Amino acid sequence: MSAVERAIEIIGGQTKAAKLLNTKQNIIWYWLNRHCQAPAKYITRISELTNGQVTVDELLADHVKTDKESAA
């Protein structure tokens, strides 16, 4: 499970996360199902919404994993 998946689960689901992040649920769905990462501009806020249960470093690690998979 990616860090963003864990974070969205902790926050309370895609709809709640979208509302708290001032975006739409379908955007969150794309993060989870297409990109497997959250855009960098949302990472700090997502970590805050999980009360630190998912750290900024963990969310950034999703970017590293995706970059390595793309290079392979």
Rank of each mutant, 00 (worst) to 15 (best):
S2M: 07
S2Q: 13
S2L: 12
S2C: 11
A3E: 08
V4T: 09
E5Q: 11
E5R: 15
E5Y: 13
A7W: 10
A7Q: 05
I10A: 06
I10L: 04
I10S: 03
I11Q: 08
I11Y: 03
G12Q: 07
T15D: 06
A17H: 03
K19W: 12
K19F: 14
L20M: 14
N22Y: 14
N22L: 14
N22P: 09
N22M: 11
K24S: 13
N26G: 06
N26T: 13
I27F: 09
I28W: 01
W29D: 05
W29N: 05
W29H: 15
Y30C: 15
W31M: 10
L32K: 01
N33M: 14
N33Q: 10
H35D: 12
H35P: 13
A38L: 11
A38Q: 08
A40S: 10
K41F: 07
K41M: 02
T44S: 13
R45Y: 05
S47Q: 04
E48F: 11
E48W: 04
E48Q: 00
L49S: 06
L49T: 02
L49D: 10
G52A: 03
Q53K: 12
V54E: 01
V54I: 04
V56A: 03
D57I: 00
L60G: 05
D62N: 03
V64G: 01
V64C: 02
K65G: 08
K65H: 08
T66E: 10
T66Y: 03
D67L: 12
D67K: 13
K68I: 02
E69W: 07
E69K: 11
S70T: 06
S70P: 04
A71S: 10
A71Y: 00
A72L: 01
A72H: 14
